[in-house]
Design a protein around this nucleic acid. Sequence first.
RNA 1: GCCCCCAUAGUUCAAUGGAUAGAAUGCAAGAUUGCGGAUCUUGUGAUAGAGGUUCGAAUCCUCUUGGGGGCACCA
Length: 565
Amino acid sequence: MKDKIKQIIEKAMAGVVKEIPAFSVEIPGDKNLGDYSTNVALVLAKKLNKNPTETANLIKEKIGENKIFKKIEVAGPGFINFFISDKVFTDSLKKIDEDFGKGKESKSKKIIIDYTDPNILKEFHIGHLMSNAVGESLSRIFEFQGADVKRVCYQSDVGLSVAKAMWGILQNKSSMPEDSAPISEKTKFLGNAYAFGSNMYESDKNAQKEIIELNKKIFEKSDKEVNNFYDIGKKWSLEHFDMLYKKLGTKFDYFIFESQVSGLGKKIVEKGLKEGIFEKGDNGAVIFKGEKYGLHTRVFINSEGLPTYEAKDLGLAELKYKKYAYNQSIIVTGNEVNEYFKVMLCAMGKVLPKLAKKTKHIGHGMLRLPEGKMSSRTGKVITGESLIEKVEELVKEKIKDRELSEKEKKGITESVAIGAVRYSILKQSIGSDIIYDFDKSISFEGDSGPYLQYSYTRAESVLRKAKAEKIKPSFKKIPDKITGLEKAIYYFPEIVSESEKKCEPHYLVLYLTELAGIFNSYYAKNKIVDKKDDFSSYKIALTNAFATIMKNGMWLLGINSLEKM
RNA sequence: GCCCCCAUAGUUCAAUGGAUAGAAUGCAAGAUUGCGGAUCUUGUGAUAGAGGUUCGAAUCCUCUUGGGGGCACCA
Protein backbone atom coordinates (compact mmCIF):
# COMPACT_ATOMS: atom_id res chain seq x y z
CA MET A 1 0.00 0.00 0.00
CA LYS A 2 2.88 2.38 0.72
CA ASP A 3 4.13 2.08 -2.84
CA LYS A 4 0.62 2.41 -4.19
CA ILE A 5 0.05 5.67 -2.33
CA LYS A 6 3.40 6.95 -3.56
CA GLN A 7 2.36 6.20 -7.12
CA ILE A 8 -0.98 7.90 -6.67
CA ILE A 9 0.73 11.04 -5.40
CA GLU A 10 3.30 11.03 -8.17
CA LYS A 11 0.63 10.54 -10.79
CA ALA A 12 -1.53 13.29 -9.34
CA MET A 13 1.35 15.74 -9.32
CA ALA A 14 2.82 14.75 -12.67
CA GLY A 15 1.60 17.80 -14.57
CA VAL A 16 1.89 20.20 -11.66
CA VAL A 17 5.54 20.09 -10.66
CA LYS A 18 8.59 19.02 -12.60
CA GLU A 19 9.95 16.69 -10.00
CA ILE A 20 8.96 15.61 -6.53
CA PRO A 21 11.90 15.22 -4.17
CA ALA A 22 12.24 12.02 -2.15
CA PHE A 23 9.44 11.64 0.36
CA SER A 24 8.07 8.90 2.56
CA VAL A 25 4.79 7.16 3.22
CA GLU A 26 4.50 5.71 6.68
CA ILE A 27 2.16 3.93 9.03
CA PRO A 28 1.73 6.54 11.77
CA GLY A 29 2.33 5.47 15.35
CA ASP A 30 -0.88 7.15 16.40
CA LYS A 31 -3.64 5.33 14.52
CA ASN A 32 -6.03 8.27 15.00
CA LEU A 33 -3.90 10.14 12.49
CA GLY A 34 -4.81 7.75 9.71
CA ASP A 35 -3.80 4.43 8.26
CA TYR A 36 -0.98 5.93 6.21
CA SER A 37 0.69 9.29 6.29
CA THR A 38 3.06 11.19 4.02
CA ASN A 39 5.41 14.13 4.38
CA VAL A 40 5.39 14.88 0.64
CA ALA A 41 3.89 18.35 1.10
CA LEU A 42 6.56 19.33 3.64
CA VAL A 43 9.36 18.19 1.38
CA LEU A 44 7.88 19.82 -1.69
CA ALA A 45 7.00 23.08 0.07
CA LYS A 46 10.56 23.39 1.32
CA LYS A 47 11.95 22.90 -2.16
CA LEU A 48 9.57 25.42 -3.75
CA ASN A 49 9.69 27.76 -0.78
CA LYS A 50 5.91 27.61 -0.32
CA ASN A 51 3.56 27.19 2.60
CA PRO A 52 3.40 23.50 3.63
CA THR A 53 -0.28 23.42 4.55
CA GLU A 54 -1.30 25.09 1.29
CA THR A 55 0.89 22.67 -0.63
CA ALA A 56 -0.70 19.76 1.22
CA ASN A 57 -4.17 21.00 0.36
CA LEU A 58 -3.16 21.36 -3.27
CA ILE A 59 -1.87 17.79 -3.41
CA LYS A 60 -5.00 16.55 -1.68
CA GLU A 61 -7.11 18.32 -4.30
CA LYS A 62 -5.06 16.87 -7.15
CA ILE A 63 -5.45 13.35 -5.79
CA GLY A 64 -9.18 13.87 -5.71
CA GLU A 65 -11.48 10.93 -5.18
CA ASN A 66 -10.20 7.39 -5.06
CA LYS A 67 -12.21 4.46 -3.85
CA ILE A 68 -9.37 3.03 -1.80
CA PHE A 69 -9.52 6.07 0.48
CA LYS A 70 -12.29 6.68 2.93
CA LYS A 71 -10.92 10.10 3.71
CA ILE A 72 -7.82 12.23 3.15
CA GLU A 73 -6.86 14.84 5.73
CA VAL A 74 -4.29 17.57 5.96
CA ALA A 75 -3.01 17.90 9.50
CA GLY A 76 -0.18 19.12 11.70
CA PRO A 77 2.58 21.10 10.02
CA GLY A 78 1.53 19.79 6.59
CA PHE A 79 1.13 16.05 6.70
CA ILE A 80 -1.36 14.33 4.45
CA ASN A 81 -3.12 11.49 6.22
CA PHE A 82 -4.89 8.72 4.38
CA PHE A 83 -7.77 6.76 5.84
CA ILE A 84 -8.18 3.55 3.90
CA SER A 85 -11.67 2.30 3.18
CA ASP A 86 -12.74 -0.73 5.19
CA LYS A 87 -13.29 -2.72 2.04
CA VAL A 88 -9.57 -2.70 1.26
CA PHE A 89 -8.89 -4.31 4.62
CA THR A 90 -11.69 -6.87 4.47
CA ASP A 91 -10.87 -7.76 0.86
CA SER A 92 -7.32 -8.42 1.89
CA LEU A 93 -8.44 -10.72 4.70
CA LYS A 94 -10.07 -13.02 2.18
CA LYS A 95 -6.74 -13.60 0.49
CA ILE A 96 -4.86 -14.68 3.59
CA ASP A 97 -3.34 -18.11 3.39
CA GLU A 98 -0.02 -19.52 4.52
CA ASP A 99 1.79 -17.64 1.75
CA PHE A 100 0.41 -14.30 2.87
CA GLY A 101 3.16 -11.73 3.16
CA LYS A 102 5.68 -13.63 1.09
CA GLY A 103 7.48 -11.17 -1.14
CA LYS A 104 9.01 -11.38 -4.56
CA GLU A 105 11.30 -8.39 -4.14
CA SER A 106 14.36 -10.52 -3.50
CA LYS A 107 13.63 -13.27 -5.97
CA SER A 108 16.83 -12.87 -7.94
CA LYS A 109 18.98 -12.47 -4.84
CA LYS A 110 21.52 -15.08 -3.88
CA ILE A 111 22.52 -14.48 -0.30
CA ILE A 112 25.15 -16.29 1.69
CA ILE A 113 24.95 -15.63 5.39
CA ASP A 114 27.53 -16.53 7.95
CA TYR A 115 26.58 -16.79 11.60
CA THR A 116 26.91 -18.65 14.91
CA ASP A 117 30.58 -19.49 14.22
CA PRO A 118 31.64 -21.30 17.39
CA ASN A 119 35.24 -22.35 17.85
CA ILE A 120 35.98 -26.00 18.28
CA LEU A 121 37.34 -27.06 21.65
CA LYS A 122 35.64 -24.08 23.27
CA GLU A 123 32.23 -23.61 24.82
CA PHE A 124 29.21 -22.65 22.80
CA HIS A 125 28.48 -19.55 24.78
CA ILE A 126 25.66 -17.09 24.90
CA GLY A 127 27.30 -14.90 22.25
CA HIS A 128 27.00 -17.76 19.77
CA LEU A 129 23.39 -18.12 20.75
CA MET A 130 22.85 -14.46 19.95
CA SER A 131 24.58 -14.72 16.61
CA ASN A 132 22.45 -17.76 15.85
CA ALA A 133 19.21 -16.03 16.79
CA VAL A 134 20.02 -13.00 14.64
CA GLY A 135 21.44 -14.93 11.69
CA GLU A 136 18.67 -17.52 11.61
CA SER A 137 15.95 -14.90 11.75
CA LEU A 138 17.55 -12.82 9.00
CA SER A 139 17.95 -15.94 6.86
CA ARG A 140 14.28 -16.79 7.24
CA ILE A 141 13.21 -13.22 6.48
CA PHE A 142 15.33 -13.16 3.30
CA GLU A 143 13.89 -16.50 2.24
CA PHE A 144 10.38 -15.32 2.93
CA GLN A 145 11.03 -12.39 0.57
CA GLY A 146 12.04 -14.83 -2.13
CA ALA A 147 15.84 -14.84 -1.86
CA ASP A 148 17.89 -17.97 -2.26
CA VAL A 149 19.77 -18.25 1.02
CA LYS A 150 22.73 -20.39 1.96
CA ARG A 151 23.69 -20.64 5.61
CA VAL A 152 27.34 -20.87 6.54
CA CYS A 153 28.92 -21.75 9.82
CA TYR A 154 32.58 -20.75 9.89
CA GLN A 155 34.38 -22.52 12.65
CA SER A 156 37.78 -21.90 14.02
CA ASP A 157 39.78 -25.11 14.20
CA VAL A 158 43.30 -23.66 14.26
CA GLY A 159 44.97 -20.68 15.80
CA LEU A 160 46.14 -19.69 19.23
CA SER A 161 42.95 -20.37 21.15
CA VAL A 162 42.77 -23.87 19.73
CA ALA A 163 46.40 -24.33 20.73
CA LYS A 164 45.57 -23.22 24.26
CA ALA A 165 42.79 -25.78 24.50
CA MET A 166 44.97 -28.47 22.95
CA TRP A 167 47.72 -27.74 25.46
CA GLY A 168 45.14 -28.10 28.23
CA ILE A 169 43.97 -31.41 26.77
CA LEU A 170 47.50 -32.79 26.53
CA GLN A 171 48.25 -31.75 30.11
CA ASN A 172 45.10 -33.53 31.36
CA LYS A 173 44.98 -36.44 28.97
CA SER A 174 44.93 -38.96 31.83
CA SER A 175 41.56 -37.66 33.03
CA MET A 176 40.06 -37.54 29.56
CA PRO A 177 36.63 -39.19 29.26
CA GLU A 178 36.02 -42.21 27.03
CA ASP A 179 34.66 -41.61 23.56
CA SER A 180 31.47 -43.40 24.64
CA ALA A 181 30.87 -40.93 27.49
CA PRO A 182 27.89 -38.56 27.25
CA ILE A 183 28.39 -35.46 25.12
CA SER A 184 27.90 -33.23 28.15
CA GLU A 185 30.83 -34.83 29.96
CA LYS A 186 33.12 -34.57 26.95
CA THR A 187 32.09 -30.95 26.43
CA LYS A 188 32.87 -30.17 30.04
CA PHE A 189 36.32 -31.68 29.74
CA LEU A 190 37.06 -29.55 26.67
CA GLY A 191 35.82 -26.41 28.39
CA ASN A 192 38.05 -27.01 31.39
CA ALA A 193 41.02 -27.75 29.16
CA TYR A 194 40.59 -24.44 27.39
CA ALA A 195 40.24 -22.48 30.63
CA PHE A 196 43.37 -24.15 32.00
CA GLY A 197 45.44 -23.59 28.86
CA SER A 198 44.30 -20.03 28.58
CA ASN A 199 45.13 -19.18 32.18
CA MET A 200 48.55 -20.79 31.94
CA TYR A 201 49.27 -18.88 28.74
CA GLU A 202 48.76 -15.66 30.66
CA SER A 203 50.55 -16.62 33.87
CA ASP A 204 53.32 -19.03 32.90
CA LYS A 205 56.02 -18.05 30.41
CA ASN A 206 57.08 -21.62 29.82
CA ALA A 207 53.54 -22.71 29.06
CA GLN A 208 53.18 -19.75 26.76
CA LYS A 209 56.21 -20.84 24.80
CA GLU A 210 54.91 -24.40 24.54
CA ILE A 211 51.51 -23.22 23.37
CA ILE A 212 53.06 -21.10 20.62
CA GLU A 213 55.05 -24.12 19.46
CA LEU A 214 51.96 -26.28 19.65
CA ASN A 215 50.07 -23.76 17.52
CA LYS A 216 52.60 -24.26 14.76
CA LYS A 217 52.44 -28.04 15.12
CA ILE A 218 48.67 -28.01 14.80
CA PHE A 219 48.86 -25.79 11.75
CA GLU A 220 51.47 -27.97 10.07
CA LYS A 221 49.97 -31.26 11.29
CA SER A 222 53.52 -32.37 12.03
CA ASP A 223 53.05 -34.31 15.28
CA LYS A 224 51.23 -37.65 15.34
CA GLU A 225 50.18 -37.56 18.98
CA VAL A 226 48.94 -34.01 18.67
CA ASN A 227 47.00 -34.88 15.52
CA ASN A 228 45.36 -37.80 17.29
CA PHE A 229 44.12 -35.79 20.26
CA TYR A 230 43.16 -32.96 17.98
CA ASP A 231 40.92 -35.24 15.92
CA ILE A 232 39.18 -36.57 19.01
CA GLY A 233 38.60 -33.09 20.40
CA LYS A 234 37.31 -31.80 17.09
CA LYS A 235 34.91 -34.70 16.75
CA TRP A 236 33.50 -34.17 20.25
CA SER A 237 33.05 -30.47 19.66
CA LEU A 238 31.19 -30.99 16.42
CA GLU A 239 28.91 -33.65 17.93
CA HIS A 240 28.04 -31.18 20.61
CA PHE A 241 27.34 -28.32 18.18
CA ASP A 242 25.22 -30.58 15.99
CA MET A 243 23.01 -31.39 18.91
CA LEU A 244 22.56 -27.69 19.62
CA TYR A 245 21.75 -26.75 16.02
CA LYS A 246 19.07 -29.39 15.97
CA LYS A 247 17.55 -27.96 19.10
CA LEU A 248 17.75 -24.43 17.74
CA GLY A 249 16.30 -25.36 14.37
CA THR A 250 19.22 -24.22 12.26
CA LYS A 251 20.42 -26.23 9.29
CA PHE A 252 23.67 -25.03 7.79
CA ASP A 253 24.37 -25.56 4.12
CA TYR A 254 28.13 -25.25 4.53
CA PHE A 255 30.46 -25.83 7.42
CA ILE A 256 33.75 -24.12 6.72
CA PHE A 257 36.81 -24.48 8.92
CA GLU A 258 39.51 -21.95 9.42
CA SER A 259 42.13 -24.48 8.35
CA GLN A 260 40.42 -24.74 4.96
CA VAL A 261 40.88 -21.07 4.19
CA SER A 262 44.24 -20.26 5.76
CA GLY A 263 46.29 -21.35 2.73
CA LEU A 264 43.99 -19.50 0.38
CA GLY A 265 44.10 -16.41 2.56
CA LYS A 266 47.87 -16.47 2.78
CA LYS A 267 48.13 -16.60 -1.01
CA ILE A 268 45.81 -13.63 -1.41
CA VAL A 269 47.87 -11.60 1.05
CA GLU A 270 51.16 -12.56 -0.59
CA LYS A 271 49.79 -11.45 -3.93
CA GLY A 272 48.65 -8.20 -2.34
CA LEU A 273 52.10 -7.74 -0.83
CA LYS A 274 53.65 -7.82 -4.31
CA GLU A 275 51.10 -5.28 -5.49
CA GLY A 276 51.96 -2.98 -2.63
CA ILE A 277 48.60 -3.29 -0.90
CA PHE A 278 50.24 -4.88 2.14
CA GLU A 279 53.61 -4.02 3.68
CA LYS A 280 56.32 -5.77 5.65
CA GLY A 281 56.25 -4.76 9.29
CA ASP A 282 58.91 -4.70 11.99
CA ASN A 283 59.50 -8.43 12.48
CA GLY A 284 58.73 -9.55 8.98
CA ALA A 285 54.99 -9.67 9.61
CA VAL A 286 52.79 -8.68 6.69
CA ILE A 287 50.59 -5.77 7.67
CA PHE A 288 47.88 -3.56 6.22
CA LYS A 289 48.29 0.13 7.03
CA GLY A 290 44.75 1.09 7.82
CA GLU A 291 45.83 4.60 8.83
CA LYS A 292 45.85 5.58 5.15
CA TYR A 293 42.07 5.15 5.23
CA GLY A 294 41.37 6.53 8.67
CA LEU A 295 41.56 3.09 10.28
CA HIS A 296 44.29 1.23 12.14
CA THR A 297 47.04 -1.18 11.17
CA ARG A 298 46.43 -4.90 11.34
CA VAL A 299 48.65 -7.93 10.89
CA PHE A 300 47.61 -10.34 8.13
CA ILE A 301 50.55 -12.73 8.27
CA ASN A 302 52.45 -12.91 11.53
CA SER A 303 56.20 -12.99 11.99
CA GLU A 304 56.05 -16.79 12.24
CA GLY A 305 54.71 -16.81 8.68
CA LEU A 306 51.26 -17.95 9.81
CA PRO A 307 48.15 -16.27 8.42
CA THR A 308 46.09 -14.48 11.06
CA TYR A 309 42.33 -14.28 11.23
CA GLU A 310 42.51 -11.31 8.85
CA ALA A 311 44.11 -13.31 6.05
CA LYS A 312 41.78 -16.22 6.67
CA ASP A 313 38.75 -13.97 6.29
CA LEU A 314 39.99 -13.03 2.83
CA GLY A 315 40.35 -16.70 1.96
CA LEU A 316 36.91 -17.35 3.40
CA ALA A 317 35.30 -14.77 1.13
CA GLU A 318 36.82 -16.42 -1.90
CA LEU A 319 35.95 -19.96 -0.80
CA LYS A 320 32.37 -18.97 -0.11
CA TYR A 321 32.11 -17.50 -3.59
CA LYS A 322 33.51 -20.70 -5.09
CA LYS A 323 30.88 -22.73 -3.28
CA TYR A 324 28.03 -20.41 -4.11
CA ALA A 325 28.22 -17.47 -6.51
CA TYR A 326 26.45 -15.04 -4.20
CA ASN A 327 25.43 -11.50 -4.95
CA GLN A 328 25.37 -10.66 -1.30
CA SER A 329 27.41 -12.00 1.57
CA ILE A 330 26.39 -11.20 5.12
CA ILE A 331 28.55 -11.90 8.13
CA VAL A 332 26.95 -11.77 11.57
CA THR A 333 29.29 -11.42 14.55
CA GLY A 334 29.52 -9.67 17.89
CA ASN A 335 30.09 -5.92 17.63
CA GLU A 336 33.40 -6.11 19.49
CA VAL A 337 34.96 -6.86 16.11
CA ASN A 338 33.27 -3.99 14.25
CA GLU A 339 36.49 -2.06 13.82
CA TYR A 340 38.40 -5.18 12.90
CA PHE A 341 35.87 -5.77 10.11
CA LYS A 342 36.26 -2.22 8.85
CA VAL A 343 39.98 -2.78 8.36
CA MET A 344 39.57 -6.26 6.94
CA LEU A 345 36.87 -5.12 4.50
CA CYS A 346 38.98 -2.14 3.51
CA ALA A 347 41.89 -4.46 2.69
CA MET A 348 39.47 -6.77 0.89
CA GLY A 349 38.33 -3.78 -1.15
CA LYS A 350 41.87 -3.51 -2.51
CA VAL A 351 42.72 -7.15 -2.99
CA LEU A 352 39.29 -8.70 -3.77
CA PRO A 353 37.27 -5.64 -4.82
CA LYS A 354 34.40 -7.52 -6.44
CA LEU A 355 33.70 -9.62 -3.36
CA ALA A 356 34.21 -6.73 -0.96
CA LYS A 357 31.40 -4.82 -2.64
CA LYS A 358 29.01 -7.68 -1.97
CA THR A 359 30.02 -8.20 1.63
CA LYS A 360 28.25 -6.71 4.59
CA HIS A 361 29.13 -7.10 8.23
CA ILE A 362 26.44 -6.97 10.90
CA GLY A 363 27.71 -6.61 14.45
CA HIS A 364 25.15 -7.65 17.03
CA GLY A 365 25.25 -6.34 20.58
CA MET A 366 27.03 -8.05 23.39
CA LEU A 367 25.34 -9.84 26.16
CA ARG A 368 26.22 -8.33 29.48
CA LEU A 369 25.64 -9.61 32.94
CA PRO A 370 25.08 -7.34 35.92
CA GLU A 371 28.32 -8.57 37.51
CA GLY A 372 30.50 -7.77 34.50
CA LYS A 373 31.78 -9.13 31.26
CA MET A 374 31.77 -12.84 30.85
CA SER A 375 34.82 -14.65 29.72
CA SER A 376 35.50 -18.24 28.83
CA ARG A 377 39.07 -17.70 29.93
CA THR A 378 38.18 -17.21 33.57
CA GLY A 379 35.46 -19.82 33.38
CA LYS A 380 32.89 -17.18 34.25
CA VAL A 381 30.74 -17.95 31.30
CA ILE A 382 27.16 -18.80 30.62
CA THR A 383 27.01 -21.42 27.96
CA GLY A 384 24.20 -21.49 25.44
CA GLU A 385 22.81 -24.67 26.91
CA SER A 386 22.98 -23.67 30.53
CA LEU A 387 20.92 -20.61 29.71
CA ILE A 388 18.31 -22.61 27.84
CA GLU A 389 18.26 -25.24 30.58
CA LYS A 390 17.70 -22.65 33.24
CA VAL A 391 14.72 -21.26 31.33
CA GLU A 392 13.42 -24.77 30.70
CA GLU A 393 13.36 -25.42 34.44
CA LEU A 394 11.01 -22.50 34.95
CA VAL A 395 8.74 -23.47 32.10
CA LYS A 396 8.55 -27.00 33.47
CA GLU A 397 7.46 -25.67 36.82
CA LYS A 398 4.78 -23.56 35.19
CA ILE A 399 3.16 -26.34 33.19
CA LYS A 400 3.60 -29.20 35.63
CA ASP A 401 -0.12 -29.32 36.56
CA ARG A 402 -1.42 -29.15 33.00
CA GLU A 403 -3.20 -32.12 31.54
CA LEU A 404 -0.56 -32.99 29.01
CA SER A 405 1.44 -36.09 28.31
CA GLU A 406 5.09 -36.18 29.34
CA LYS A 407 6.09 -36.11 25.72
CA GLU A 408 3.95 -33.04 25.03
CA LYS A 409 5.36 -31.33 28.10
CA LYS A 410 8.91 -31.92 26.96
CA GLY A 411 8.27 -30.44 23.52
CA ILE A 412 6.42 -27.46 24.94
CA THR A 413 9.11 -26.80 27.53
CA GLU A 414 11.81 -26.71 24.89
CA SER A 415 9.85 -24.55 22.45
CA VAL A 416 8.80 -22.06 25.08
CA ALA A 417 12.31 -21.79 26.52
CA ILE A 418 13.93 -21.23 23.14
CA GLY A 419 11.16 -18.83 22.20
CA ALA A 420 11.76 -16.83 25.38
CA VAL A 421 15.49 -16.56 24.74
CA ARG A 422 15.10 -15.78 21.03
CA TYR A 423 12.52 -13.11 21.75
CA SER A 424 14.67 -11.33 24.30
CA ILE A 425 17.55 -11.26 21.83
CA LEU A 426 15.51 -10.13 18.82
CA LYS A 427 13.23 -7.61 20.47
CA GLN A 428 15.76 -4.83 20.27
CA SER A 429 17.75 -3.42 17.38
CA ILE A 430 20.67 -5.65 16.44
CA GLY A 431 23.62 -3.42 17.29
CA SER A 432 22.86 -2.57 20.88
CA ASP A 433 23.95 -4.55 23.90
CA ILE A 434 21.57 -6.61 25.92
CA ILE A 435 21.74 -6.34 29.66
CA TYR A 436 20.83 -9.84 30.54
CA ASP A 437 18.68 -10.14 33.56
CA PHE A 438 17.78 -13.75 34.27
CA ASP A 439 14.62 -12.98 36.16
CA LYS A 440 13.26 -10.74 33.46
CA SER A 441 14.17 -13.00 30.57
CA ILE A 442 12.27 -15.85 32.11
CA SER A 443 9.35 -13.79 33.24
CA PHE A 444 6.63 -14.43 30.70
CA GLU A 445 4.60 -11.36 31.44
CA GLY A 446 4.11 -8.74 28.80
CA ASP A 447 6.33 -8.61 25.77
CA SER A 448 7.93 -11.98 25.57
CA GLY A 449 8.17 -15.04 23.38
CA PRO A 450 5.67 -16.96 25.50
CA TYR A 451 3.19 -14.08 25.17
CA LEU A 452 3.24 -14.53 21.39
CA GLN A 453 3.01 -18.28 21.72
CA TYR A 454 0.18 -18.02 24.21
CA SER A 455 -1.85 -15.72 21.98
CA TYR A 456 -1.46 -18.08 19.06
CA THR A 457 -2.37 -21.10 21.16
CA ARG A 458 -5.44 -19.35 22.45
CA ALA A 459 -6.56 -18.60 18.90
CA GLU A 460 -5.99 -22.23 17.94
CA SER A 461 -8.04 -23.30 20.91
CA VAL A 462 -10.89 -21.05 19.79
CA LEU A 463 -10.69 -22.50 16.29
CA ARG A 464 -10.87 -26.01 17.70
CA LYS A 465 -13.99 -25.09 19.57
CA ALA A 466 -15.52 -23.56 16.45
CA LYS A 467 -14.88 -26.78 14.60
CA ALA A 468 -16.46 -28.81 17.37
CA GLU A 469 -19.55 -26.60 17.26
CA LYS A 470 -19.57 -26.88 13.48
CA ILE A 471 -19.41 -23.16 12.73
CA LYS A 472 -17.41 -22.60 9.58
CA PRO A 473 -15.17 -19.61 8.99
CA SER A 474 -16.51 -17.26 6.34
CA PHE A 475 -16.14 -13.69 5.13
CA LYS A 476 -19.57 -13.65 3.51
CA LYS A 477 -21.25 -11.56 6.14
CA ILE A 478 -18.98 -8.69 7.13
CA PRO A 479 -19.78 -6.26 9.95
CA ASP A 480 -20.23 -2.58 9.06
CA LYS A 481 -17.47 -1.44 11.31
CA ILE A 482 -14.10 -3.07 11.36
CA THR A 483 -11.73 -3.01 14.33
CA GLY A 484 -8.01 -2.49 14.76
CA LEU A 485 -7.47 -6.21 14.35
CA GLU A 486 -8.34 -6.25 10.65
CA LYS A 487 -5.97 -3.35 10.04
CA ALA A 488 -3.14 -4.81 12.09
CA ILE A 489 -3.35 -8.05 10.14
CA TYR A 490 -3.25 -6.13 6.88
CA TYR A 491 0.12 -4.52 7.72
CA PHE A 492 2.03 -7.80 8.04
CA PRO A 493 3.60 -7.92 4.54
CA GLU A 494 4.80 -4.35 4.84
CA ILE A 495 6.45 -5.04 8.18
CA VAL A 496 8.26 -8.10 6.86
CA SER A 497 9.49 -6.06 3.92
CA GLU A 498 10.73 -3.35 6.26
CA SER A 499 12.55 -5.89 8.42
CA GLU A 500 14.22 -7.30 5.34
CA LYS A 501 15.29 -3.95 3.91
CA LYS A 502 16.83 -2.80 7.15
CA CYS A 503 18.07 -6.22 8.27
CA GLU A 504 16.26 -5.68 11.56
CA PRO A 505 14.04 -8.45 12.93
CA HIS A 506 12.96 -6.25 15.85
CA TYR A 507 10.42 -4.44 13.66
CA LEU A 508 8.72 -7.78 13.26
CA VAL A 509 8.97 -8.54 16.97
CA LEU A 510 7.35 -5.24 17.90
CA TYR A 511 4.64 -5.73 15.31
CA LEU A 512 3.78 -9.26 16.40
CA THR A 513 3.67 -8.20 20.03
CA GLU A 514 1.26 -5.41 19.19
CA LEU A 515 -0.81 -7.71 16.98
CA ALA A 516 -1.05 -10.31 19.75
CA GLY A 517 -2.16 -7.60 22.16
CA ILE A 518 -4.84 -6.40 19.74
CA PHE A 519 -6.10 -9.94 19.31
CA ASN A 520 -6.17 -10.56 23.06
CA SER A 521 -8.11 -7.37 23.50
CA TYR A 522 -10.51 -8.36 20.71
CA TYR A 523 -10.91 -11.73 22.36
CA ALA A 524 -11.78 -10.11 25.67
CA LYS A 525 -14.44 -7.91 24.10
CA ASN A 526 -16.02 -10.37 21.65
CA LYS A 527 -17.44 -13.80 21.96
CA ILE A 528 -16.05 -15.46 18.87
CA VAL A 529 -17.70 -18.86 18.81
CA ASP A 530 -21.40 -18.24 19.27
CA LYS A 531 -24.15 -20.05 17.38
CA LYS A 532 -26.58 -17.25 18.09
CA ASP A 533 -24.33 -14.64 16.51
CA ASP A 534 -24.66 -14.02 12.76
CA PHE A 535 -21.12 -12.69 12.67
CA SER A 536 -19.58 -15.70 14.40
CA SER A 537 -18.38 -17.11 11.08
CA TYR A 538 -16.69 -13.83 10.31
CA LYS A 539 -15.04 -13.69 13.71
CA ILE A 540 -13.79 -17.23 13.32
CA ALA A 541 -12.39 -16.42 9.89
CA LEU A 542 -10.69 -13.38 11.38
CA THR A 543 -9.23 -15.47 14.19
CA ASN A 544 -8.01 -17.91 11.58
CA ALA A 545 -6.29 -15.10 9.67
CA PHE A 546 -4.67 -13.89 12.88
CA ALA A 547 -3.39 -17.38 13.67
CA THR A 548 -1.89 -17.74 10.20
CA ILE A 549 0.00 -14.47 10.51
CA MET A 550 1.22 -15.25 14.00
CA LYS A 551 2.48 -18.63 12.91
CA ASN A 552 4.37 -17.20 9.95
CA GLY A 553 5.65 -14.27 11.96
CA MET A 554 6.94 -16.42 14.78
CA TRP A 555 8.58 -18.76 12.31
CA LEU A 556 10.49 -15.79 10.91
CA LEU A 557 11.85 -15.20 14.40
CA GLY A 558 12.68 -18.84 14.99
CA ILE A 559 9.95 -19.18 17.60
CA ASN A 560 7.80 -22.30 17.42
CA SER A 561 4.04 -22.01 17.38
CA LEU A 562 2.21 -24.46 19.62
CA GLU A 563 -1.26 -25.99 19.48
CA LYS A 564 -1.23 -26.45 23.23
CA MET A 565 0.94 -25.06 25.99
C1' G B 1 47.12 8.77 24.40
C1' C B 2 44.26 7.81 19.74
C1' C B 3 39.78 5.68 17.28
C1' C B 4 34.67 3.66 17.33
C1' C B 5 29.84 2.95 19.72
C1' C B 6 26.33 4.44 23.38
C1' A B 7 23.38 7.73 27.09
C1' U B 8 15.22 8.17 26.51
C1' A B 9 9.88 6.81 32.44
C1' G B 10 12.32 3.38 38.82
C1' U B 11 13.93 -0.77 35.15
C1' U B 12 14.40 -3.12 30.01
C1' C B 13 13.61 -1.39 25.16
C1' A B 14 10.97 1.70 20.63
C1' A B 15 10.69 6.18 17.64
C1' U B 16 13.61 7.05 7.60
C1' G B 17 14.88 15.26 10.84
C1' G B 18 8.31 15.52 11.68
C1' A B 19 2.46 15.65 14.60
C1' U B 20 0.68 15.01 21.83
C1' A B 21 8.31 10.88 22.54
C1' G B 22 5.55 4.88 22.13
C1' A B 23 5.61 -0.19 24.56
C1' A B 24 6.61 -3.62 28.39
C1' U B 25 7.74 -4.17 33.36
C1' G B 26 7.15 -1.86 38.26
C1' C B 27 3.53 0.58 41.33
C1' A B 28 -2.07 1.86 42.11
C1' A B 29 -7.14 0.56 40.91
C1' G B 30 -10.57 -2.58 38.31
C1' A B 31 -12.55 -6.93 34.88
C1' U B 32 -14.19 -13.84 34.43
C1' U B 33 -22.68 -15.95 34.17
C1' G B 34 -18.02 -16.03 27.51
C1' C B 35 -13.99 -19.82 23.69
C1' G B 36 -7.06 -20.91 27.88
C1' G B 37 -6.13 -15.27 33.79
C1' A B 38 0.89 -16.94 30.73
C1' U B 39 -5.27 -12.51 29.61
C1' C B 40 -7.85 -7.70 29.37
C1' U B 41 -9.12 -2.24 31.01
C1' U B 42 -7.60 2.47 33.42
C1' G B 43 -4.04 5.52 35.94
C1' U B 44 1.34 6.81 37.00
C1' G B 45 6.02 8.34 35.00
C1' A B 46 11.50 9.98 30.61
C1' U B 47 15.07 12.57 25.88
C1' A B 48 22.56 13.20 30.72
C1' G B 49 24.29 18.83 30.63
C1' A B 50 25.49 23.42 27.64
C1' G B 51 25.58 25.73 22.93
C1' G B 52 24.53 25.56 17.45
C1' U B 53 22.00 24.18 12.43
C1' U B 54 16.56 23.84 10.93
C1' C B 55 9.83 25.93 9.62
C1' G B 56 10.67 21.58 12.89
C1' A B 57 15.97 17.94 16.84
C1' A B 58 15.73 12.14 21.15
C1' U B 59 17.72 12.02 16.10
C1' C B 60 22.50 16.32 12.66
C1' C B 61 27.19 19.55 14.40
C1' U B 62 30.57 21.35 18.69
C1' C B 63 31.96 21.06 23.73
C1' U B 64 31.26 18.79 28.79
C1' U B 65 30.09 14.58 31.89
C1' G B 66 29.30 9.36 32.38
C1' G B 67 29.47 4.09 30.34
C1' G B 68 31.18 0.16 26.75
C1' G B 69 34.47 -1.66 22.90
C1' G B 70 38.96 -1.47 20.07
C1' C B 71 44.14 0.12 18.95
C1' A B 72 50.41 -5.13 15.17
C1' C B 73 51.37 -10.57 15.32
C1' C B 74 44.03 -13.62 19.70
C1' A B 75 39.37 -14.40 17.36
